[in-house]
């Protein structure tokens, strides 16, 4: 945007929305192609701010300017936070770690979609997928099992407890086993690899209207269930993980499919039926395996 505008934006942040809106409208018709590459995008952000777990929260409006289309969404939030810190305000709290799409920490709902409009994580979402002048809503994952800690940060510990209930195999530790000791059929290896891709981000839960963790749990049940190494605990794993999943207060599946659409790692929707089949098989086998 033009220089006077960014200046006013910096000196009168947040609270002076009205003045800025007039300003924006006044020059918005004339600048056309003049901005962009040099000055970057100007965006309106509506971000969920909540000081603590027990405190009230609200969507709060911010303006950011000078956003490059090559920035990631997290870089864009960093830009906002630098300004907020410089102005003595509290920065927006959000979770992040690897910033390369493999840790699953950076969950947030952008314009009603988990991780935003692209099938990837927020750290891998680039601002080129937004248009100059856009208003973007940013909210935390919403699920009873994911309490908000602060702003966009939620406690995803429930997912860890589901894994802890059975998402492991029992194997002697120590030196690495001989690679050919246990043959794994190629299709089983492919299935296991595809499901091992789950990064525990929780986007499936956030996207599901029932706050269900079925896709997440299914990813682990299928991953270990198809491998010979996972066979000894095949029945107890699915029973214990599903019990833990229910105990954590996640909802059930109503076959909506929003989870698989939101999953940044492409865990297939059919995995949920695979888990259903595994569960019912374990029940038929009389419970414990």
């Amino acid at each position: 945007m033009n220089a006077p505008h960014s200046t006013s934006d910096r000196t009168q942040p947040g609270a002076t929305d009205d003045a800025e809106t007039t300003d924006g409208a006044a020059h918005g018709t004339t600048d056309g192609a003049a901005h962009g590459a040099t000055d970057g995008m100007e965006l309106t952000l509506r971000i969920w701010r909540q000081p603590g777990p027990e405190e009230q929260g609200a969507m709060t409006t911010y303006r950011v300017t000078g956003i490059s289309p090559d920035m990631s969404f997290l870089d864009m939030l960093d830009t906002l936070n630098e300004r907020l810190i410089a102005e003595g305000d509290e920065p927006v709290a959000f979770d992040h770690d690897c910033r390369e799409g493999i840790c699953g920490a950076c969950g947030m709902v952008i314009n009603g979609q988990a991780h935003g409009p692209q099938p990837t994580t927020t750290c891998q979402l680039h601002m080129r997928h937004f248009d100059d002048g856009d208003t973007i809503d940013v909210e935390p994952w919403r699920a009873a099992a994911f309490p908000v800690i602060r702003d966009l940060v939620v406690d995803r510990g429930a997912l860890d407890r589901v894994i802890g209930a059975g998402g492991y195999i029992t194997a002697p530790t120590g030196s690495a086993p001989e690679a050919h000791a246990t043959a794994v059929p190629k299709p089983a290896a492919d299935t296991a690899f595809a499901h091992a891709e789950c990064i525990g981000c929780g986007a499936c839960v956030a996207a599901c209207p029932n706050g269900a963790a079925m896709l997440f749990t299914a990813a682990k049940v299928v991953h270990l269930g198809v491998l010979p190494q996972g066979a000894p605990e095949r029945e107890s794993r699915v029973l214990d993980m599903v019990t833990a999943m229910d105990d954590e207060g996640f909802g059930g599946c109503t076959q909506v499919g929003a989870c698989a659409t939101a999953c940044p790692k492409g865990i297939p929707f059919e995995s949920i039926s695979d888990m259903n089949r595994e569960y019912l098989r374990a029940v038929r086998k009389g419970g414990r395996g």
């Binding site: 969507m59 709902v109 009603g112 699920a143 009873a144 706050g211 207060g249 909802g251």
Partner: peptide, 13 residues
């Protein structure tokens, strides 16, 4: 159960 598992909806419309 499903309704209780998502007590707060998204503000985005």
């Amino acid at each position: 159960r499903d309704i209780a598992a998502r007590p707060v909806g998204y503000a985005h419309r």
